[in-house]
C-alpha cells in the first residue's frame, strides 16, 4: 500500500512539474509576439516624441534646429536595434517553435494520461494543461501567420 502511495505521489509530482513546464513553454512561445509588441510600443513612443519635438520646432519658428544636440533627438537608433533584435529572435524561432509545439502536446498528453490513471478529481489541473497547450498553439499560429505575411 505504501508503495502504491509513493508511486501515486511521484505521478502527481510529475504531473505538476509538467504542468508548470507547459506554462513555461507557452510563455517561451509568446516571446516573438511580445518582442514585436514591445517594438510596436517603442515605435509609438518614438512617434509621440517626434510629435513633441515638431511642436518645439513650430513654437521656435525652426530656430531650435540650429542646435545639433536638438537634431540628435530625432534619431531612432534604439528603435533600429530593437527591430534587429526582433528579427534575430524571429529567425531563431523557426527552429524553436516546432520544439515548443511538440513539447506542449507531450506535456498535455502525459497530464491527461496520469490524471486518468490516478483517478483523482483534478479538473483544475486538466483545464490548466489544456489552456497552456492552447496558448502555445495560439502563439505558434500568430508566429507563422506573421512569418508568412513577412515572406509574402
Amino acid at each position: 500500500m505504501e508503495k502504491e502511495l509513493y508511486r501515486m505521489q511521484a505521478e502527481n509530482r510529475l504531473c505538476g512539474t509538467l504542468l508548470r513546464l507547459g506554462w513555461l513553454v507557452a510563455l517561451g512561445a509568446f516571446v516573438p509576439v511580445l518582442l514585436h509588441g514591445l517594438f510596436f510600443g517603442a515605435a509609438l513612443g518614438y512617434a509621440m516624441r517626434v510629435l513633441i519635438l515638431v511642436l518645439f520646432v513650430l513654437i521656435t519658428f525652426g530656430a531650435i534646429l540650429l542646435y545639433e544636440s536638438f537634431r540628435d533627438l530625432f534619431r531612432a537608433d534604439g528603435l533600429e536595434q530593437l527591430q534587429a533584435l526582433a528579427d534575430k529572435v524571429t529567425a531563431a524561432y523557426q527552429a524553436l517553435m516546432p520544439v515548443f509545439l511538440v513539447l506542449s502536446v507531450c506535456f498535455l498528453a502525459l497530464n491527461i494520461f496520469f490524471v486518468h490513471k490516478n483517478g483523482a478529481p483534478k479538473t483544475g489541473r486538466l483545464v490548466s494543461a489544456v489552456l497552456s497547450a492552447l496558448c502555445t498553439a495560439i502563439a505558434a499560429l500568430l508566429y507563422y501567420t506573421a512569418v508568412q505575411g513577412g515572406a509574402a
Binding site: N12, T17, L21
Partner: peptide, 22 residues
Amino acid sequence: RPFWWLYALLFWVLGVMGFFTP
C-alpha cells in the same frame, strides 16, 4: 520514502533547479 534524495534530485533537475516542481 527510501532514496528520498534521489527522488528530490530527479525532480529538482526535471523542474529546472526545482523552480517548476510543486
